[in-house]
Design a protein around this nucleic acid. Structure first.
Lengths: 329, 329
DNA sequence: CCTCCCTATGTAAGCGCTTACATTCCGAGG
DNA sequence: CCTCGGAATGTAAGCGCTTACATAGGGAGG
């Protein structure tokens, strides 16, 4: 039989109001509270979150929408989010939009129906203005890797441009003057490219070659093959580690050695990067931190504050895939 | 202002009961239903899941507990689960146990408080019997990669033993007679080892060497170094792709070529496997399928049926990391 | 010793929905 | 033409909890 506040009240010899207050830190005499807690424990009472939510209008749930759950860094981000949210007694429901606007809208609908108290939107998706237009009553919004600062929404992103700039500088610092780049998709891709270009421009250089990629191994491989066929560079900055892996393969097939013939830098610092041959120099994304910050932002917004947006730094991890300039390709 | 059934009822000129029935497929005259739906749409009515849950006792939510969200295959599994669950109008809340029994229990507590209608438990964790003992009223359980068939709980697992057996056979088929193995952790690790040993035993062979690993690159690297220092094998089966990557590194450092000097097989078929140099032969885990099957099991249990447990096959993916027997290490 | 006020507790009204039961209205069968 | 049964709809009672408001009981201040 289901244990409700009534059972607890009866067992403790008080009213349900007192039980509720005792359980939620309301004003109750210490002795009474003790009695109530004891009774609740003895009966194995477990408050019904649905009923609580209905009564208070607060579900203690936040909704998370991500474009692609299979992304390698998403797990860490989720962990950061979960760590702070669960510590605060919040649960969360996460879903994948698959970068489909219609699907994203449907997901949001469902989350609103579930009365989420805040929404964390990760990655590309409908612009904030469109969301506000489509959904009348939106809960507090927090964005990760998504445009929204303009709309006054707290946004947490990684430092793409500056990180790419630093990576490129590392290549230049090793004496390379002919450096190529394999671009990524979306805003992250554009920003990384911008940092790349800025570093070159500052050094009075032009990119030796540029190719479009899609963040995958296969995309990196194809792009690298095309680039290598034309040659003219001694270093290459790939916008993601996965693409850098494709570059390794293409270089191998072309009979090029890394880093002797070609220096390579990636982006993300996935688990495998440190174990490639040679270990890949790359930029470490603060994925966990991103989630943590977003979680804290949610909490502070719920507390009526207005958290600041932030751009988190990526650390450049120097490994053996970059060498001082050797022979040109 | 919040739109409730009452508003819709008034707008449609009917009672709330009729609204509810019209919305949920109850017995209502076609014309009336039309009128209600129109009113609901016009007002932008969105049923409150919390209230629905409270009233019906069914939350249309399932809880998912995984040991580690950062696992590379977890995203796919989650997708499989989500695909079938959302199609059926279910939401899900996912959380990480971090392999901590206390934490797992707390998570389950919270999920029960949220009135999940079913629980999907992934990977290692408290035994079913312990759960039943600790939690009085457990909803239907479905397990993935976790012990439970004995307790009559539908369980979905991948074929570890047989897959490892096939991988080992592939090595033997290539003429290798001295083959080493780097073990994994937990049940998956034990089963893979068992398959490995069975294949050897059937061929009248003994393992050339055995080392313990932990499924990580670093663990694989360490184990491979130790193994390589002693030598005596021409092929190696690593219980995970990540460990195989560590093997690649150790082999490189030892001046060994793969596959000329050493054939390697991994397990998982992570995205990077196909792009290593040489591409890694491995076993493809049906992660999405695992999630999908579990989702279907949840649905069928909720429908009063008793789904069958299943062990899903892994496909052996032959790539260039395995060659016919060359020189011994 | 009597108010007054504050504190501890109780009473009861919802929160938004579903659903058992009651009611109404018809057409069919006698 | 009356009655009966079923279909369509309405009424109202919860689901388990929180919380505004009411009540009771003291101690402090006069």
């Amino acid at each position: 039989m289901k244990v409700t506040v009534y059972e607890v009240a009866r067992a403790a010899g008080v009213s349900v109001a007192t039980v509720s207050r005792a359980l939620n830190g309301g004003p109750v005499a210490p002795a009474t509270r003790e009695r109530v807690l004891a009774a609740a424990r003895r009966l194995g009472y477990r408050p019904d979150r649905l009923a609580q939510g209905l009564a208070t209008g607060r579900s203690r749930t936040v909704g998370v929408v991500i474009p692609d759950a299979t992304g390698p860094l998403y797990g860490q981000m989720q962990r950061g989010l979960a760590d702070v949210l669960t510590a605060a007694g919040f649960g969360y429901i996460a879903t994948e939009s698959r970068r489909d606007p219609g699907r994203e809208a449907a997901l949001l609908d469902e989350m609103l129906a579930r009365k989420v108290e805040a929404l964390v939107l990760v990655g590309s998706g409908l612009p904030v203005a469109a969301l506000r237009a489509r959904f009348s009553a939106l809960p507090p919004l927090v964005l990760i890797e998504r445009e929204g600062a303009a709309a006054g929404v707290p946004t947490y992103q990684i430092e793409n441009e500056a990180a790419a700039y630093r990576a490129t500088r590392a290549l230049l610092g090793a004496g390379h003057t002919q450096v190529a780049h394999i671009k990524g998709l979306r805003r992250a891709g554009r920003e990384r490219e911008a940092g790349f270009l800025r570093a070159l421009a500052e050094a009075g250089l032009k990119p030796a070659a540029l190719a479009a990629g899609d963040f995958t191994e296969e995309g990196g491989y194809r792009a690298a093959r095309a680039l290598l066929a034309r040659g003219g560079f001694t270093a290459l900055f790939a916008a993601s580690d996965r693409m850098a892996l494709g570059v390794y393969r293409a270089a191998f097939e072309a009979g090029l050695r890394i880093p002797e013939d070609l220096s390579v830098v990636g982006f993300d610092d996935l688990a495998f990067a440190a174990y490639l041959t040679p270990p890949l120099s790359t930029l470490r994304q603060p994925a966990y931190e991103l989630g943590r910050r977003a979680g804290e932002a949610v909490l502070s917004m719920l507390g009526g504050e207005t958290p600041e947006s932030a751009v988190l730094p990526c650390a450049y991890v120097a490994r053996a895939s970059v060498a001082r300039k050797g022979g040109a390709v």
